[in-house]
Design a binder for these strands. Structure first.
Lengths: 202, 202
DNA sequence: GGGGCGCTTGCGGATATCCACAATAGCCCT
DNA sequence: AGGGCTATTGTGGATATCCGCAAGCGCCCC
């Protein structure tokens, strides 16, 4: 399987080139942008890999870029590079979910290690998200009525009670119930409960 | 309900006193120690509140103390105080799970705010842990056989199948099953599945 | 107007689950 | 030896669930 690529955003040509060279020499793929704006313009939700962002850049900082990306639903791990040891900034970045915050100049091996770790994290995250999404797709295939019934099935109510609550016949509940199991690809209420509790709640 | 207290560990008498005074003036309770060793000696698992640790101390640093406490199962949020802006140290601390990392001198209001937030987090964490623990207590009250049956019930197997697998009569499975529901304080397999999936896995 | 889809219901039977009542047996501890 | 706990099984009945077969009704779209 193809691994993600490192998305480098730095307004310093020399650093971009050095990073690209370093990564290529270690067998990693990267792509570079000279500004936050440029990256944002190219950003696509299906990009995979990690971010390597310079904190201090003209116009838009790496941290602000990260904020924007988060708002766009980007989940790639971000490694921030900073030239001047600013503790509050580091704290702020990490609290926002940065993967790492590294001071320049830094050891090449360490940086590469962190990037590899970030790429691996992204891979794991996507693998996990895939299963969660498949659940959501199935959930969306349920009709309104089926959702209502499912909620009550998950609450452990008997078909009889559900029927009374929804003012429909028990047989109807049974039909919805089988359809729910069929659509959700489970064979019992227990499996359904585990599927939903294990993935993500409704 | 009583809120937790701030546990201050700093080898500088003046700072300890200043912090204690500041917190008391804001209606918060605190207790101070002059060294990591002293705190470790007094540490009890049922302490609640937050930690306010000086990073640089003789013998054992605040970070090392935090490590030791984590190993002891301590879950109190830790706020680190540092006098010299050391970015790698900040990054390291936060990655280890520090609640915050603040440079001295710092704004009193900000510090108090962070301490209040940490105390609130500890409260929430304990509230959540309480329910998880209650589940585990109940789980431990199950006999070996009951666990075996429960595992299979959660796998969605019919009593008949479970009975065949365990080489016992179906009736026996039914008995175990009711006992499981009774001990776990649920009334159906669905509830059981949700309880376990929602809390923590076996 | 016909067709697809969602929601509804009934009948009847095969299976499963839930439970009270009743009982046997092994193991550990006092 | 007796008591407590765990595991085991049976009988029999009340409830529930699972399903195939069959069908009516309303809504939306081509």
């Amino acid at each position: 399987m193809k691994s993600g690529i490192a998305h480098i955003v730095d307004d310093d040509d020399a650093i971009r080139d050095a990073l690209a060279w370093l990564l290529r020499s270690r067998g990693l793929t990267s792509q570079s942008w000279a500004s936050a704006e440029a990256f944002l313009a190219d950003y696509l939700p299906d990009m995979r890999g990690c971010l390597v962002l310079d904190i201090r850049m003209a116009d838009m900082s790496g941290l602000e870029l990260f904020d924007r990306l988060l708002a766009l639903g980007c989940t790639m791990p971000a490694i921030f590079l900073t030239g001047h040891g600013d503790v509050p900034l580091a704290v702020q970045s990490l609290k926002k979910g940065a993967f790492d915050f590294i001071e320049k100049p830094c050891n090449d091996n360490d940086l590469v290690d962190r990037i590899i770790a970030a790429l691996a994290l992204d891979y794991e995250q996507r693998k996990h998200a895939a299963s969660t999404q498949s659940i959501e797709v199935r959930l969306r295939s349920l009709t309104t009525r089926e959702r209502e019934v499912m909620d009550r099935v998950l609450a452990g109510q008997y078909n009889k009670v559900i029927a009374a609550e929804l003012n429909i016949a028990m047989r109807t509940v049974e039909v919805h119930r089988s359809r729910i199991f069929e659509k959700m690809d489970v064979k019992s209420a227990v499996e359904l409960a585990q599927l939903l509790a294990g993935g993500q709640q409704d």
